[in-house]
Simulated assay, not measured.
Amino acid sequence: MHTTITIDALKVLDAIDRKGSFAGAASELFRVPSAISYTIQKLEEDLNVSIFDRTGHKAVLTPAGRHLLNEGRALLNAAENLAHSTQQIAQGWETRLRIGFNSLLPAECLMPAIRNFQNLSVPVDVQIIEEVFAGAWDALQSRRVDLIVGADLLSKPTGSFATRTLGQVPFVFAVAPNHPLAKLKGALSESQIIQYPAAVAADTSRALSPGHAGIFSRQRTITVTNIDQKIAIQEAGLGVGWLPKPRIRQQLANGTLIAKDVHEPRAPISIHLARHRDDKGKALMWFWRELSEDVQLKNWLEIE
């Protein structure tokens, strides 16, 4: 379908409105006034509408002209953004980078890297997406995200992925100080634990098999959407379960959660950075290197 509205005509219309006259637009666009008048006249003829009301001493936009200008400015902005993003991509920079992080880690772990990236003054939009359990790998495999921080190898799907080890996450079985399990002596048994609901963070995977580590088959559950909510449920004494120790250091220190020994301890899990092996955009690889060497992130994992 042929359109009679051109980017150039919209630029002329925008300049006239901002400068307040045809002469002002001509000066800004480095054209003679007759060229500005011709552009508007041709646009009016092609659209078969009056863009300016010329009955007074000064040309004033008609309602149709005002509508054309308002909508046209959106097109001008879109055209400018398109040109800019095309240049970015030609230079190897993505226009957007989506970073998924495993809920075992707090979002705050990413803030130093994001701050350093912002200091580069590269116009790349960064989107942070929280995932739980196998949802991290699922998001990467389906390309809902470009990079995963905190991917475990237990739920890794088949595919060509690059990974880098970040460290290990230890777990503790935690209960509120007023919970009945808090008063029991010695290591807790399965028969003791299953009497009380387990707090569960729901797996966000859409295609991969979901995970639910640390729950007994006969145990009732209270399901929430992330680890933060699971921590809150357990602090409130409404549920029990395994929690990543680095996430609850403060709660253990101030006594709002108590670590309990169990007969079958849960082993730490190794967590990694992960991306599609062939993806090597500049923003992606910058975060890949930055997070691989992030001392604060490694310290957060390792401090007892």
Results as ranks from 00 to 15, higher is better:
residue 231 I to W: 09
residue 101 F to T: 03
residue 135 G to V: 02
residue 112 P to M: 09
residue 11 K to M: 06
residue 24 G to V: 06
residue 59 A to D: 12
residue 193 I to C: 06
residue 257 L to M: 07
residue 198 A to Q: 09
residue 1 M to I: 02
residue 288 W to K: 08
residue 21 S to F: 08
residue 167 G to E: 12
residue 296 Q to V: 00
residue 125 D to E: 15
residue 138 D to A: 06
residue 45 E to I: 02
residue 184 L to A: 07
residue 27 S to I: 03
residue 39 T to H: 02
residue 194 I to Q: 14
residue 216 F to L: 03
residue 298 K to I: 03
residue 156 K to P: 04
residue 258 I to F: 07
residue 189 S to N: 13
residue 295 V to N: 12
residue 182 A to R: 10
residue 90 A to F: 05
residue 183 K to G: 04
residue 183 K to M: 07
residue 245 K to P: 01
residue 121 S to Y: 13
residue 122 V to R: 15
residue 228 D to H: 05
residue 209 S to Y: 12
residue 46 D to Q: 14
residue 302 E to M: 08
residue 258 I to H: 11
residue 192 Q to F: 05
residue 91 Q to C: 00
residue 11 K to G: 04
residue 13 L to S: 10
residue 144 R to W: 10
residue 111 M to A: 10
residue 75 L to R: 15
residue 71 E to H: 12
residue 297 L to A: 08
residue 169 V to A: 08
residue 87 Q to G: 02
residue 178 N to T: 13
residue 203 D to K: 01
residue 237 G to R: 10
residue 157 P to N: 11
residue 229 Q to H: 06
residue 152 D to K: 04
residue 226 N to P: 04
residue 223 T to Y: 05
residue 153 L to P: 01
residue 162 A to P: 04
residue 5 I to K: 09
residue 86 T to E: 15
residue 266 R to I: 02
residue 196 Y to F: 15
residue 257 L to K: 04
residue 228 D to G: 06
residue 225 T to C: 03
residue 7 I to E: 15
residue 111 M to V: 09
